[in-house]
Computed example of a mutant assay.
Amino acid sequence: MALGVMLLVVAVLCGIATIREIKRRNFFAVGFAGISFLVFGWFSIMTIFVSGAPEV
């Protein structure tokens, strides 16, 4: 669960960086920050979903 929360924090920071770099018109950084946002966001949601699901 802690790993999922840490990944979520990184995803939020990548989202902030994406918006900041769009304002600066640095599209190379927008690409990297946007891809990082998608990847870390996906991993964080899936980690929280899998570790938070009760075992049957």
Rank of each mutant, 00 (worst) to 15 (best):
M1E: 06
A2V: 14
L3H: 04
L3G: 09
G4I: 03
G4T: 04
G4F: 01
G4K: 07
M6L: 15
M6W: 12
M6F: 13
L7R: 00
L8G: 13
L8V: 04
L8T: 08
V9H: 01
V9C: 13
V9I: 15
V10G: 01
A11C: 11
A11D: 05
V12A: 13
V12F: 09
C14M: 15
C14P: 00
G15A: 04
I16M: 13
A17Q: 09
T18F: 11
I19E: 06
I19N: 07
R20K: 12
R20N: 05
R20E: 05
E21G: 00
E21V: 03
I22K: 10
K23I: 12
R24S: 13
R24W: 02
R24V: 11
N26Q: 14
N26M: 08
F27E: 09
F28N: 11
A29L: 13
A29R: 03
V30H: 07
V30C: 07
V30N: 05
G31A: 14
G31T: 11
G31W: 01
G34L: 08
I35V: 14
I35K: 01
S36V: 05
S36H: 03
F37H: 03
F37L: 15
F37Q: 06
L38E: 02
V39G: 00
F40D: 00
F40H: 03
F40P: 00
G41I: 01
G41V: 02
G41T: 03
W42G: 08
W42I: 15
W42N: 04
S44K: 02
S44I: 05
S44Y: 03
I45G: 03
M46Q: 13
M46G: 03
T47S: 11
F49V: 10
F49D: 07
V50N: 10
S51C: 04
S51L: 14
S51H: 07
A53D: 00
A53Y: 07
P54C: 04
P54Y: 05
E55H: 10
E55K: 12
E55I: 15
E55W: 08
V56I: 07
